[in-house]
Design a protein around this nucleic acid. Sequence first.
RNA 1: GCCCCCAUCGUCUAGAGGCCUAGGACGCCACCCUUUCAAGGUGGAGAUCAGGGGUUCGAAUCCCCUUGGGGGCACCA
Length: 501
Amino acid sequence: MTNRCRIAPSPTGPLHIGTARTALYNYLFARRTGGTFILRLEDTDAARSSLEHERDILEGLHWLGLTWDEGPEVAGLPARGPFGPYRQMQRLPLYREAADRLLSQDRAYPCYCTPDELAADRHAQEQAHQPPHYVGRCATLSMDQRRQREAEGRKPAVRFRVGEGIVAFDDLIRGHVEIDTTALGGDLVIVRSDGTPLYHFTVVVDDAEMRITHVIRGEDHLSNTPKHILLFRALGADIPTFAHLPLILNADRTKMSKRKSQTAIEDYRNEGFVKEAIVNYLALLGWSPGTEEEIFGLDELAQRFDLERVHSAGAVFDRGRLEWLNGQWMRRLPDEELIERSMPFLFRSLDERAAAGGAIRTPTEADLHALLPMIRERLPLLSSIGDLIDFLFVDDVRVDAALLVPKRWDARTTTDAVADARRVIAEAGAVSFEADELEVALRQLAEERGWKAGDLFMAIRVAVTGRTATPPLFDTLVALGQERTLERLDRAAETLRSGVA
RNA sequence: GCCCCCAUCGUCUAGAGGCCUAGGACGCCACCCUUUCAAGGUGGAGAUCAGGGGUUCGAAUCCCCUUGGGGGCACCA
Protein backbone atom coordinates (compact mmCIF):
# COMPACT_ATOMS: atom_id res chain seq x y z
CA MET A 1 0.00 0.00 0.00
CA THR A 2 1.37 3.40 -0.84
CA ASN A 3 1.60 6.03 1.84
CA ARG A 4 -0.90 8.83 1.75
CA CYS A 5 -0.37 11.98 3.78
CA ARG A 6 -1.84 15.41 3.66
CA ILE A 7 -1.56 19.04 4.61
CA ALA A 8 -4.87 20.43 5.72
CA PRO A 9 -4.58 24.18 6.12
CA SER A 10 -7.37 26.34 7.33
CA PRO A 11 -7.82 29.54 5.30
CA THR A 12 -8.22 31.68 8.38
CA GLY A 13 -5.01 33.59 7.84
CA PRO A 14 -2.09 33.88 5.45
CA LEU A 15 0.27 30.91 5.03
CA HIS A 16 1.94 30.45 8.39
CA ILE A 17 5.53 29.34 8.91
CA GLY A 18 4.31 26.37 10.92
CA THR A 19 1.86 25.29 8.25
CA ALA A 20 4.58 25.59 5.65
CA ARG A 21 6.91 23.43 7.73
CA THR A 22 4.23 20.79 8.29
CA ALA A 23 3.43 20.86 4.58
CA LEU A 24 7.11 20.46 3.78
CA TYR A 25 7.53 17.45 6.05
CA ASN A 26 4.45 15.82 4.60
CA TYR A 27 5.67 16.55 1.12
CA LEU A 28 9.13 15.17 1.84
CA PHE A 29 7.70 12.09 3.47
CA ALA A 30 5.50 11.42 0.46
CA ARG A 31 8.28 12.02 -2.04
CA ARG A 32 10.79 10.01 -0.09
CA THR A 33 8.53 7.00 0.24
CA GLY A 34 6.91 7.21 -3.15
CA GLY A 35 3.65 8.15 -1.49
CA THR A 36 0.90 10.62 -2.27
CA PHE A 37 0.76 14.15 -0.93
CA ILE A 38 -2.71 15.57 -0.59
CA LEU A 39 -3.92 19.09 -0.02
CA ARG A 40 -7.24 19.59 1.69
CA LEU A 41 -8.76 22.91 2.68
CA GLU A 42 -10.36 22.97 6.09
CA ASP A 43 -12.70 25.86 5.63
CA THR A 44 -15.53 24.96 7.99
CA ASP A 45 -14.92 28.00 10.16
CA ALA A 46 -17.03 30.20 7.93
CA ALA A 47 -16.64 33.19 10.19
CA ARG A 48 -12.87 33.35 9.85
CA SER A 49 -12.17 31.70 6.53
CA SER A 50 -11.69 33.79 3.45
CA LEU A 51 -10.96 33.23 -0.20
CA GLU A 52 -8.12 35.69 0.00
CA HIS A 53 -6.32 33.60 2.60
CA GLU A 54 -7.03 30.48 0.65
CA ARG A 55 -5.34 31.99 -2.35
CA ASP A 56 -2.41 33.14 -0.26
CA ILE A 57 -1.91 29.68 1.19
CA LEU A 58 -2.15 27.85 -2.11
CA GLU A 59 0.05 30.37 -3.81
CA GLY A 60 2.58 30.23 -0.99
CA LEU A 61 2.83 26.44 -1.00
CA HIS A 62 3.18 26.49 -4.74
CA TRP A 63 5.88 29.11 -4.52
CA LEU A 64 7.84 26.95 -2.10
CA GLY A 65 7.61 24.15 -4.61
CA LEU A 66 5.41 21.92 -2.46
CA THR A 67 3.21 20.60 -5.22
CA TRP A 68 0.42 18.27 -4.25
CA ASP A 69 -0.72 15.15 -6.03
CA GLU A 70 -4.34 15.49 -5.02
CA GLY A 71 -6.13 18.66 -4.15
CA PRO A 72 -8.85 21.18 -4.92
CA GLU A 73 -9.34 23.06 -8.15
CA VAL A 74 -6.92 25.92 -8.34
CA ALA A 75 -6.67 28.91 -10.61
CA GLY A 76 -8.97 27.43 -13.20
CA LEU A 77 -7.38 24.00 -13.02
CA PRO A 78 -9.76 21.21 -12.06
CA ALA A 79 -9.51 19.33 -8.79
CA ARG A 80 -7.17 16.37 -8.93
CA GLY A 81 -7.53 13.04 -7.23
CA PRO A 82 -10.19 10.38 -6.74
CA PHE A 83 -11.28 11.49 -3.28
CA GLY A 84 -12.58 14.98 -3.98
CA PRO A 85 -13.90 17.43 -3.35
CA TYR A 86 -10.88 18.62 -1.38
CA ARG A 87 -12.58 21.60 0.17
CA GLN A 88 -14.50 20.73 3.31
CA MET A 89 -17.41 23.06 2.74
CA GLN A 90 -18.09 21.02 -0.37
CA ARG A 91 -18.04 17.80 1.59
CA LEU A 92 -20.85 18.65 3.95
CA PRO A 93 -23.08 15.72 2.88
CA LEU A 94 -20.30 13.33 3.83
CA TYR A 95 -20.12 14.66 7.36
CA ARG A 96 -23.90 14.68 7.62
CA GLU A 97 -24.01 11.07 6.57
CA ALA A 98 -21.27 10.08 9.00
CA ALA A 99 -22.96 11.96 11.83
CA ASP A 100 -26.27 10.27 11.06
CA ARG A 101 -24.58 6.94 11.19
CA LEU A 102 -23.11 7.65 14.62
CA LEU A 103 -26.47 8.99 15.76
CA SER A 104 -28.32 5.91 14.62
CA GLN A 105 -25.84 3.69 16.44
CA ASP A 106 -26.16 5.87 19.52
CA ARG A 107 -22.44 6.57 19.43
CA ALA A 108 -23.50 10.17 19.27
CA TYR A 109 -26.55 12.01 20.51
CA PRO A 110 -28.33 15.30 20.05
CA CYS A 111 -27.36 17.89 22.64
CA TYR A 112 -29.76 20.70 23.43
CA CYS A 113 -27.62 22.60 25.87
CA THR A 114 -27.55 26.34 25.27
CA PRO A 115 -24.37 28.37 25.14
CA ASP A 116 -25.40 29.93 28.44
CA GLU A 117 -25.76 26.58 30.12
CA LEU A 118 -22.39 25.47 28.87
CA ALA A 119 -20.76 28.71 29.96
CA ALA A 120 -22.30 28.29 33.40
CA ASP A 121 -20.96 24.73 33.61
CA ARG A 122 -17.52 25.89 32.69
CA HIS A 123 -17.66 28.65 35.22
CA ALA A 124 -18.70 26.27 37.99
CA GLN A 125 -15.90 23.89 37.06
CA GLU A 126 -13.44 26.68 37.18
CA GLN A 127 -14.62 27.62 40.67
CA ALA A 128 -14.30 24.01 41.75
CA HIS A 129 -10.80 23.75 40.24
CA GLN A 130 -11.95 21.03 37.92
CA PRO A 131 -10.83 20.61 34.35
CA PRO A 132 -13.39 21.93 31.89
CA HIS A 133 -15.60 19.15 30.64
CA TYR A 134 -19.08 18.50 29.33
CA VAL A 135 -21.30 17.40 32.22
CA GLY A 136 -23.41 15.05 30.11
CA ARG A 137 -26.72 16.76 30.61
CA CYS A 138 -28.07 15.51 27.29
CA ALA A 139 -26.29 12.18 27.23
CA THR A 140 -29.16 10.23 28.67
CA LEU A 141 -32.18 12.09 27.42
CA SER A 142 -35.16 9.89 26.61
CA MET A 143 -36.89 10.14 23.26
CA ASP A 144 -39.71 12.02 24.95
CA GLN A 145 -37.36 14.51 26.49
CA ARG A 146 -35.73 15.06 23.12
CA ARG A 147 -39.09 15.55 21.44
CA GLN A 148 -40.03 18.04 24.08
CA ARG A 149 -36.91 20.08 23.47
CA GLU A 150 -37.42 19.93 19.73
CA ALA A 151 -40.95 21.19 20.32
CA GLU A 152 -39.49 24.17 22.14
CA GLY A 153 -37.72 24.93 18.90
CA ARG A 154 -34.26 24.08 20.20
CA LYS A 155 -31.77 23.14 17.54
CA PRO A 156 -29.49 20.37 18.77
CA ALA A 157 -25.78 20.02 18.28
CA VAL A 158 -24.44 16.49 17.89
CA ARG A 159 -22.19 15.10 20.57
CA PHE A 160 -19.94 12.08 20.26
CA ARG A 161 -19.86 9.64 23.16
CA VAL A 162 -16.28 9.45 24.34
CA GLY A 163 -16.78 6.54 26.71
CA GLU A 164 -14.33 5.17 29.23
CA GLY A 165 -10.95 3.60 28.87
CA ILE A 166 -7.44 4.29 27.81
CA VAL A 167 -6.50 5.16 24.27
CA ALA A 168 -3.01 4.24 23.22
CA PHE A 169 -1.08 4.79 20.03
CA ASP A 170 2.47 4.66 18.78
CA ASP A 171 3.59 8.01 17.53
CA LEU A 172 6.42 7.86 15.01
CA ILE A 173 8.19 10.69 16.76
CA ARG A 174 7.03 10.42 20.39
CA GLY A 175 6.80 6.69 20.78
CA HIS A 176 4.06 5.04 22.80
CA VAL A 177 1.44 7.44 24.13
CA GLU A 178 -1.47 6.59 26.39
CA ILE A 179 -4.25 8.91 27.40
CA ASP A 180 -7.21 8.19 29.63
CA THR A 181 -10.48 9.26 28.01
CA THR A 182 -11.56 10.92 31.25
CA ALA A 183 -8.98 13.58 30.40
CA LEU A 184 -10.70 14.37 27.13
CA GLY A 185 -13.25 16.83 28.46
CA GLY A 186 -16.32 14.72 28.08
CA ASP A 187 -18.45 14.05 25.03
CA LEU A 188 -17.44 16.37 22.25
CA VAL A 189 -19.54 18.31 19.82
CA ILE A 190 -19.01 17.08 16.29
CA VAL A 191 -21.78 19.01 14.56
CA ARG A 192 -22.87 22.51 15.50
CA SER A 193 -26.53 23.29 16.09
CA ASP A 194 -26.53 25.04 12.73
CA GLY A 195 -25.62 21.76 11.10
CA THR A 196 -21.99 22.53 10.24
CA PRO A 197 -19.38 20.00 11.35
CA LEU A 198 -16.42 20.73 13.60
CA TYR A 199 -12.75 20.18 13.08
CA HIS A 200 -12.23 17.05 15.17
CA PHE A 201 -14.99 15.40 13.21
CA THR A 202 -14.22 16.57 9.70
CA VAL A 203 -10.55 15.76 10.05
CA VAL A 204 -11.36 12.17 10.91
CA VAL A 205 -14.11 11.70 8.36
CA ASP A 206 -11.86 13.08 5.66
CA ASP A 207 -8.72 11.25 6.70
CA ALA A 208 -10.73 8.04 6.71
CA GLU A 209 -12.47 8.81 3.44
CA MET A 210 -9.25 9.88 1.74
CA ARG A 211 -7.44 6.78 2.98
CA ILE A 212 -4.78 8.79 4.77
CA THR A 213 -2.15 6.41 6.12
CA HIS A 214 0.11 8.92 7.88
CA VAL A 215 -1.01 11.93 9.82
CA ILE A 216 2.00 14.23 10.16
CA ARG A 217 1.09 17.39 12.06
CA GLY A 218 2.11 19.72 14.85
CA GLU A 219 2.51 18.57 18.40
CA ASP A 220 -0.34 20.81 19.42
CA HIS A 221 -2.60 18.03 18.17
CA LEU A 222 -1.06 15.32 20.28
CA SER A 223 -3.58 15.64 23.11
CA ASN A 224 -6.43 15.62 20.62
CA THR A 225 -5.33 12.43 18.96
CA PRO A 226 -7.29 10.11 21.27
CA LYS A 227 -10.48 11.87 20.22
CA HIS A 228 -9.59 11.22 16.64
CA ILE A 229 -8.78 7.58 17.30
CA LEU A 230 -12.10 7.12 19.04
CA LEU A 231 -13.86 8.63 16.06
CA PHE A 232 -11.96 6.48 13.59
CA ARG A 233 -13.01 3.44 15.55
CA ALA A 234 -16.62 4.52 15.78
CA LEU A 235 -16.68 5.06 12.05
CA GLY A 236 -15.18 1.67 11.48
CA ALA A 237 -12.18 3.13 9.73
CA ASP A 238 -8.52 2.16 9.77
CA ILE A 239 -6.47 4.23 12.14
CA PRO A 240 -3.59 6.05 10.45
CA THR A 241 -0.08 6.24 11.82
CA PHE A 242 0.60 9.48 13.65
CA ALA A 243 3.72 11.60 13.71
CA HIS A 244 3.60 14.72 15.84
CA LEU A 245 6.15 17.31 14.88
CA PRO A 246 7.83 19.57 17.44
CA LEU A 247 6.46 23.08 17.55
CA ILE A 248 8.19 26.11 16.13
CA LEU A 249 8.73 28.55 18.97
CA ASN A 250 8.91 32.28 19.59
CA ALA A 251 12.12 33.54 21.19
CA ASP A 252 10.49 33.05 24.62
CA ARG A 253 9.87 29.39 23.75
CA THR A 254 6.12 29.66 23.49
CA LYS A 255 4.31 28.38 20.40
CA MET A 256 5.17 30.66 17.51
CA SER A 257 2.52 33.29 17.08
CA LYS A 258 2.07 36.33 14.95
CA ARG A 259 1.88 38.45 18.06
CA LYS A 260 5.49 37.68 18.92
CA SER A 261 7.07 36.69 15.64
CA GLN A 262 6.80 37.28 11.95
CA THR A 263 4.81 34.20 10.93
CA ALA A 264 3.53 34.88 7.42
CA ILE A 265 5.58 33.25 4.67
CA GLU A 266 4.39 36.08 2.47
CA ASP A 267 6.22 38.60 4.64
CA TYR A 268 9.50 36.73 4.35
CA ARG A 269 9.00 36.53 0.64
CA ASN A 270 8.38 40.26 0.40
CA GLU A 271 11.47 40.91 2.43
CA GLY A 272 13.54 39.18 -0.20
CA PHE A 273 14.04 35.73 1.21
CA VAL A 274 14.48 33.14 -1.47
CA LYS A 275 12.29 30.04 -1.43
CA GLU A 276 15.27 27.68 -1.38
CA ALA A 277 16.49 29.23 1.85
CA ILE A 278 13.10 28.99 3.50
CA VAL A 279 12.67 25.36 2.52
CA ASN A 280 16.21 24.55 3.60
CA TYR A 281 15.80 26.35 6.89
CA LEU A 282 12.43 24.84 7.70
CA ALA A 283 13.68 21.36 6.89
CA LEU A 284 16.54 21.76 9.34
CA LEU A 285 14.24 23.18 12.00
CA GLY A 286 13.33 19.92 13.67
CA TRP A 287 15.02 17.49 11.34
CA SER A 288 18.67 16.72 10.82
CA PRO A 289 20.35 14.67 8.12
CA GLY A 290 22.79 13.19 10.63
CA THR A 291 25.74 14.51 8.65
CA GLU A 292 27.39 17.87 8.86
CA GLU A 293 26.10 19.18 5.56
CA GLU A 294 23.42 21.78 5.75
CA ILE A 295 22.73 23.20 2.35
CA PHE A 296 19.94 21.18 0.83
CA GLY A 297 17.61 21.80 -2.07
CA LEU A 298 14.08 20.43 -2.12
CA ASP A 299 14.95 17.44 -4.28
CA GLU A 300 17.89 16.50 -2.16
CA LEU A 301 15.77 16.78 0.94
CA ALA A 302 13.20 14.53 -0.67
CA GLN A 303 15.89 11.91 -1.07
CA ARG A 304 17.16 12.12 2.46
CA PHE A 305 14.23 13.00 4.65
CA ASP A 306 13.30 10.53 7.31
CA LEU A 307 10.68 10.93 10.02
CA GLU A 308 12.86 8.94 12.37
CA ARG A 309 15.37 11.74 12.36
CA VAL A 310 12.83 14.35 13.38
CA HIS A 311 13.41 15.79 16.85
CA SER A 312 10.95 15.75 19.64
CA ALA A 313 11.76 19.07 21.30
CA GLY A 314 10.39 22.39 20.12
CA ALA A 315 12.68 24.69 18.13
CA VAL A 316 13.05 28.45 18.40
CA PHE A 317 12.77 30.21 15.07
CA ASP A 318 16.13 31.86 14.44
CA ARG A 319 15.92 34.53 11.82
CA GLY A 320 19.67 35.05 11.78
CA ARG A 321 20.24 31.52 10.63
CA LEU A 322 17.61 31.92 7.95
CA GLU A 323 19.39 35.02 6.72
CA TRP A 324 22.66 33.17 6.53
CA LEU A 325 21.06 30.41 4.51
CA ASN A 326 19.47 33.03 2.31
CA GLY A 327 22.90 34.41 1.50
CA GLN A 328 24.17 30.94 0.77
CA TRP A 329 21.35 30.29 -1.65
CA MET A 330 21.47 33.63 -3.38
CA ARG A 331 25.15 33.13 -4.06
CA ARG A 332 24.36 29.77 -5.60
CA LEU A 333 21.60 30.99 -7.87
CA PRO A 334 22.40 31.08 -11.59
CA ASP A 335 22.85 34.59 -13.00
CA GLU A 336 19.59 34.70 -14.90
CA GLU A 337 17.70 33.45 -11.91
CA LEU A 338 19.23 35.98 -9.55
CA ILE A 339 18.56 38.79 -11.98
CA GLU A 340 14.98 37.79 -12.55
CA ARG A 341 14.28 37.52 -8.87
CA SER A 342 16.01 40.68 -7.76
CA MET A 343 14.73 42.97 -10.51
CA PRO A 344 11.33 43.53 -8.90
CA PHE A 345 13.06 44.53 -5.68
CA LEU A 346 15.32 46.95 -7.50
CA PHE A 347 12.32 48.52 -9.22
CA ARG A 348 10.60 48.79 -5.91
CA SER A 349 13.42 50.75 -4.31
CA LEU A 350 13.80 52.92 -7.38
CA ASP A 351 10.10 53.65 -7.37
CA GLU A 352 10.45 54.77 -3.81
CA ARG A 353 13.30 57.06 -4.76
CA ALA A 354 11.27 58.40 -7.64
CA ALA A 355 8.29 58.97 -5.40
CA ALA A 356 10.55 60.98 -3.13
CA GLY A 357 11.14 63.29 -6.03
CA GLY A 358 14.24 61.97 -7.73
CA ALA A 359 14.63 61.37 -11.43
CA ILE A 360 15.57 57.77 -12.15
CA ARG A 361 16.67 55.79 -15.12
CA THR A 362 15.33 52.30 -15.66
CA PRO A 363 17.78 49.45 -15.25
CA THR A 364 17.79 46.76 -17.91
CA GLU A 365 18.62 43.12 -17.59
CA ALA A 366 21.89 43.83 -19.33
CA ASP A 367 22.71 46.42 -16.67
CA LEU A 368 22.04 43.87 -13.99
CA HIS A 369 24.09 41.28 -15.76
CA ALA A 370 27.09 43.59 -15.81
CA LEU A 371 26.59 44.50 -12.17
CA LEU A 372 26.05 41.00 -10.90
CA PRO A 373 29.67 40.04 -10.13
CA MET A 374 30.05 43.00 -7.85
CA ILE A 375 26.82 42.62 -5.92
CA ARG A 376 26.39 38.89 -5.64
CA GLU A 377 28.55 38.52 -2.51
CA ARG A 378 26.96 41.53 -0.92
CA LEU A 379 23.32 40.55 -0.94
CA PRO A 380 21.83 39.28 2.31
CA LEU A 381 18.31 39.58 0.87
CA LEU A 382 16.94 40.16 -2.61
CA SER A 383 15.58 43.43 -1.30
CA SER A 384 19.08 44.63 -0.40
CA ILE A 385 19.84 45.27 -4.03
CA GLY A 386 18.53 48.82 -3.91
CA ASP A 387 20.94 49.83 -1.17
CA LEU A 388 23.77 48.40 -3.20
CA ILE A 389 23.25 49.97 -6.59
CA ASP A 390 20.34 52.38 -6.64
CA PHE A 391 22.70 55.36 -6.89
CA LEU A 392 23.56 54.18 -10.37
CA PHE A 393 20.02 54.80 -11.50
CA VAL A 394 19.16 57.86 -9.49
CA ASP A 395 20.22 61.17 -10.96
CA ASP A 396 20.16 63.50 -8.01
CA VAL A 397 22.35 61.72 -5.53
CA ARG A 398 22.38 63.81 -2.41
CA VAL A 399 25.67 63.80 -0.58
CA ASP A 400 26.02 64.68 3.05
CA ALA A 401 28.83 67.22 3.44
CA ALA A 402 29.91 65.71 6.75
CA LEU A 403 30.13 62.25 5.23
CA LEU A 404 32.28 63.52 2.40
CA VAL A 405 35.31 64.10 4.57
CA PRO A 406 37.11 60.85 5.41
CA LYS A 407 37.75 60.20 9.07
CA ARG A 408 41.45 61.05 9.03
CA TRP A 409 41.06 64.08 6.77
CA ASP A 410 39.91 67.65 7.01
CA ALA A 411 37.70 69.57 4.59
CA ARG A 412 40.61 71.25 2.82
CA THR A 413 42.37 67.96 2.01
CA THR A 414 39.09 66.51 0.81
CA THR A 415 38.48 69.47 -1.43
CA ASP A 416 41.92 69.05 -2.94
CA ALA A 417 41.45 65.35 -3.34
CA VAL A 418 38.12 65.68 -5.11
CA ALA A 419 39.59 68.24 -7.48
CA ASP A 420 42.66 66.12 -8.22
CA ALA A 421 40.61 62.98 -8.60
CA ARG A 422 38.38 64.78 -11.03
CA ARG A 423 41.37 65.74 -13.10
CA VAL A 424 42.85 62.26 -13.09
CA ILE A 425 39.56 60.60 -13.92
CA ALA A 426 38.90 63.13 -16.67
CA GLU A 427 42.25 62.26 -18.18
CA ALA A 428 41.41 58.58 -18.30
CA GLY A 429 40.46 57.50 -21.76
CA ALA A 430 36.74 57.84 -22.29
CA VAL A 431 36.88 55.01 -24.77
CA SER A 432 38.52 52.58 -22.41
CA PHE A 433 37.16 53.72 -19.09
CA GLU A 434 38.34 50.70 -17.19
CA ALA A 435 38.64 49.74 -13.58
CA ASP A 436 42.27 48.66 -13.70
CA GLU A 437 43.34 51.81 -15.42
CA LEU A 438 41.50 54.02 -12.95
CA GLU A 439 42.97 52.21 -10.02
CA VAL A 440 46.53 52.66 -11.24
CA ALA A 441 46.03 56.33 -11.94
CA LEU A 442 44.34 57.07 -8.63
CA ARG A 443 46.84 55.10 -6.59
CA GLN A 444 49.56 57.09 -8.24
CA LEU A 445 47.78 60.30 -7.36
CA ALA A 446 47.55 59.25 -3.72
CA GLU A 447 51.21 58.47 -3.67
CA GLU A 448 52.21 61.79 -5.22
CA ARG A 449 50.19 63.68 -2.66
CA GLY A 450 51.21 61.53 0.26
CA TRP A 451 47.65 60.39 0.94
CA LYS A 452 46.59 56.98 2.02
CA ALA A 453 44.94 55.40 -0.97
CA GLY A 454 42.07 54.23 1.19
CA ASP A 455 41.25 57.78 2.24
CA LEU A 456 41.29 59.05 -1.31
CA PHE A 457 39.08 56.18 -2.41
CA MET A 458 36.66 56.84 0.40
CA ALA A 459 36.36 60.49 -0.54
CA ILE A 460 35.62 59.55 -4.13
CA ARG A 461 33.26 56.81 -3.06
CA VAL A 462 31.13 59.12 -0.98
CA ALA A 463 31.28 61.90 -3.55
CA VAL A 464 30.02 59.62 -6.25
CA THR A 465 27.57 57.36 -4.41
CA GLY A 466 26.61 59.23 -1.27
CA ARG A 467 27.45 56.13 0.72
CA THR A 468 30.37 54.84 2.73
CA ALA A 469 29.64 51.21 1.93
CA THR A 470 29.44 50.32 -1.74
CA PRO A 471 30.56 47.69 -4.21
CA PRO A 472 34.24 47.98 -5.22
CA LEU A 473 34.98 51.58 -6.17
CA PHE A 474 36.51 51.27 -9.61
CA ASP A 475 33.87 48.91 -10.88
CA THR A 476 31.34 51.33 -9.52
CA LEU A 477 32.91 54.23 -11.39
CA VAL A 478 32.92 52.24 -14.61
CA ALA A 479 29.29 51.28 -14.10
CA LEU A 480 28.44 54.90 -13.57
CA GLY A 481 30.39 56.03 -16.63
CA GLN A 482 32.98 58.74 -16.94
CA GLU A 483 30.60 61.57 -17.64
CA ARG A 484 28.37 60.99 -14.66
CA THR A 485 31.34 60.33 -12.42
CA LEU A 486 32.77 63.73 -13.30
CA GLU A 487 29.40 65.40 -12.76
CA ARG A 488 29.12 63.94 -9.31
CA LEU A 489 32.64 64.94 -8.39
CA ASP A 490 31.78 68.50 -9.44
CA ARG A 491 28.68 68.42 -7.32
CA ALA A 492 30.66 67.13 -4.36
CA ALA A 493 33.14 69.95 -4.82
CA GLU A 494 30.28 72.42 -4.64
CA THR A 495 28.90 70.78 -1.56
CA LEU A 496 32.29 71.01 0.09
CA ARG A 497 32.65 74.65 -0.81
CA SER A 498 29.31 75.64 0.68
CA GLY A 499 29.77 73.26 3.59
CA VAL A 500 33.13 74.77 4.50
CA ALA A 501 31.88 78.34 4.12
C1' G B 1 -6.67 22.85 37.82
C1' C B 2 -6.34 18.14 34.93
C1' C B 3 -3.92 15.35 30.98
C1' C B 4 0.02 14.80 27.49
C1' C B 5 4.82 16.01 25.47
C1' C B 6 9.75 17.84 26.04
C1' A B 7 14.88 18.92 28.34
C1' U B 8 23.04 18.81 24.88
C1' C B 9 26.78 25.78 23.89
C1' G B 10 22.56 32.29 23.41
C1' U B 11 20.04 29.64 18.88
C1' C B 12 19.55 25.24 15.36
C1' U B 13 21.63 20.59 16.16
C1' A B 14 25.33 15.70 16.13
C1' G B 15 25.33 12.07 19.76
C1' A B 16 21.05 5.49 19.76
C1' G B 17 26.42 2.67 26.87
C1' G B 18 32.92 3.03 26.00
C1' C B 19 35.06 6.59 19.53
C1' C B 20 32.88 12.61 24.12
C1' U B 21 38.68 15.96 28.09
C1' A B 22 30.73 16.42 23.89
C1' G B 23 31.34 17.42 17.21
C1' G B 24 29.13 20.93 13.44
C1' A B 25 26.35 25.39 11.99
C1' C B 26 24.28 30.45 13.01
C1' G B 27 25.54 34.48 16.03
C1' C B 28 29.76 36.75 18.81
C1' C B 29 35.26 38.02 19.25
C1' A B 30 40.25 38.14 17.03
C1' C B 31 43.41 37.68 12.97
C1' C B 32 44.23 37.05 7.52
C1' C B 33 42.57 38.87 2.73
C1' U B 34 41.21 44.01 1.48
C1' U B 35 39.92 50.83 -1.38
C1' U B 36 34.68 50.67 1.92
C1' C B 37 31.00 46.95 2.69
C1' A B 38 30.47 42.06 2.02
C1' A B 39 32.01 37.20 0.82
C1' G B 40 35.94 33.85 2.01
C1' G B 41 39.93 31.72 5.20
C1' U B 42 42.14 30.72 10.10
C1' G B 43 41.66 30.73 15.26
C1' G B 44 38.92 31.70 19.91
C1' A B 45 35.26 32.28 23.75
C1' G B 46 30.83 29.52 24.56
C1' A B 47 27.30 23.20 27.23
C1' U B 48 30.01 20.57 34.99
C1' C B 49 24.94 17.27 28.55
C1' A B 50 18.40 20.97 33.85
C1' G B 51 19.15 18.75 39.09
C1' G B 52 19.15 14.32 42.10
C1' G B 53 19.01 9.24 42.58
C1' G B 54 19.66 4.48 40.48
C1' U B 55 21.23 0.31 36.57
C1' U B 56 26.27 -0.80 34.68
C1' C B 57 33.16 -2.26 34.99
C1' G B 58 31.53 2.28 32.31
C1' A B 59 26.02 6.97 31.04
C1' A B 60 24.78 12.99 27.50
C1' U B 61 23.00 8.16 26.00
C1' C B 62 18.77 3.18 29.94
C1' C B 63 15.17 3.62 34.50
C1' C B 64 12.92 6.64 38.49
C1' C B 65 12.03 11.22 40.99
C1' U B 66 12.34 16.49 41.15
C1' U B 67 12.56 21.01 38.69
C1' G B 68 11.77 23.80 34.51
C1' G B 69 9.47 24.65 29.82
C1' G B 70 5.71 23.78 26.30
C1' G B 71 1.08 22.00 24.40
C1' G B 72 -3.94 20.46 24.94
C1' C B 73 -8.54 20.55 27.58
C1' A B 74 -14.48 25.27 22.74
C1' C B 75 -21.04 24.69 19.07
C1' C B 76 -11.81 27.59 16.71
C1' A B 77 -8.72 25.04 13.32
